[in-house]
Design a protein around this nucleic acid. Sequence first.
DNA 1: GCGCGACTTTGACACGGATCAAAAAAGAGA
DNA 2: TCTCTTTTTTGATCCGTGTCAAAGTCGCGC
Lengths: 246, 246
Amino acid sequence: MSVLHMDFKDCGQCPIRHRAVCSRCEPDELEALEAVKYYRTYDAGQPILWSGDHLEFVASVVTGIATLSQTMEDGRTQMVGLLLPSDFIGRPNRETAPFDVVAVSDVTLCCFRRRPFENLMASTPHIGHRLLEMTLDELDSAREWMLVLGRKTAREKIASLLLIIARRDAVLRKKVPSDGMTFDLPLTRESMADYLGLTLETVSRQISALKKSEVIELQGKRRVLVPELERLVAETGDDFDGGMIS
Amino acid sequence: MSVLHMDFKDCGQCPIRHRAVCSRCEPDELEALEAVKYYRTYDAGQPILWSGDHLEFVASVVTGIATLSQTMEDGRTQMVGLLLPSDFIGRPNRETAPFDVVAVSDVTLCCFRRRPFENLMASTPHIGHRLLEMTLDELDSAREWMLVLGRKTAREKIASLLLIIARRDAVLRKKVPSDGMTFDLPLTRESMADYLGLTLETVSRQISALKKSEVIELQGKRRVLVPELERLVAETGDDFDGGMIS
DNA sequence: GCGCGACTTTGACACGGATCAAAAAAGAGA
DNA sequence: TCTCTTTTTTGATCCGTGTCAAAGTCGCGC
């Protein structure tokens, strides 16, 4: 299972949720996509795919949030990706899902049957090229995340995650991320811990610490206000202009 | 900078080191590749690319070993990949290198000038498809490594790294990895530490501990014998049949 | 063979994050 | 509104890994 990010440059012709794949599609290509398209919905907490499942579709997230993760036999789990609206799920030319995909909130997917999608891809080079670009970006993101997991402290890990969520949130709402921005935390403390390679207690403590040192403010448990986002960036040494997601 | 793995299925027509890219190439495509090919060599320890460098080529590692890594301003570094013979370096359609590439041993690269390579790719769908497949595999590998970095103990991390090196070594020598295999460690303790998100002292201690508990034997500092590779596999919960590299 | 620098091992100790436990807060359903 | 459950917070303690320091080993050039 790969997760690829769509850019929603609207080509003015494409159906709402796969216009990204086909921003350069010809009308007949659009028709072909449309013919194999269907929607699926999942409730919060429901699994979408288990690692090893047979893949019958590729899809784009329309609404909601899902996670991509691995679990060891003893229960230790590591999230390897966060799937937000506009993210792509699936692997052309692969039979099985390599990771678990779980709906965090209610999720709607726009699915394309895999075989026809692969055929269309084979006959439509620009779709393959676009997928390659997206996959290369995603590979870079994954490798950047390795630095977070391998070398950053708990505090820096939390900051990195807040930045990612703030950025994605800003992109989805088409706002410029800037000082004083506010956003919702879509994840439980446990999910954040699984993303960051920490325990939920450590996540909770670090968030409390950031609040006490007035780096962030909380409105309820799940809404965050970052008065000085720039400072948080500087502190962690992240550059803020890189791709769409780190 | 992406790293992609070549499979060396020989098409019987292709020049030695890019036959993988073109295992399905037509003769005229091979000629086009040959026309923009050149070799570069680097001494052990020499940088090949710095993050941000302008990319003038894509390349395939012919001999030697290189690492792919990131470094923070304060000096903490994280390796994100190991480049062995047959690995691919480069990013079609990208201007700059996203990570540092450093030669660990003396390295020879078979380079293709980037622009012509991109042009060939644009006009030759199967090259793009092959690159997409390789990139998807590499993305899965990167995500599997996240589990190692985020959730495994020092001992498990060492075991995971030894397994990767043993596997790659076996593939390069076309041996079946099995009980009692022996291989060289191409990395210093420090490089291993940077790969695993540990310190070099911890790496050294864990290797000593594995030796003492007779899970591995050392012949010198840099040659490892694993009497019971299968057990090491079982202990870490890795499956041993997945892709070429984890 | 000797000396020097690079790499590795080992020890003592500190500290960050994990673990175990319990209370507090927030939702969800009746 | 009042449970009952889930999530979050906080505290006490423990342990694995980091840090700092020193000694040991290897390899290479003279």
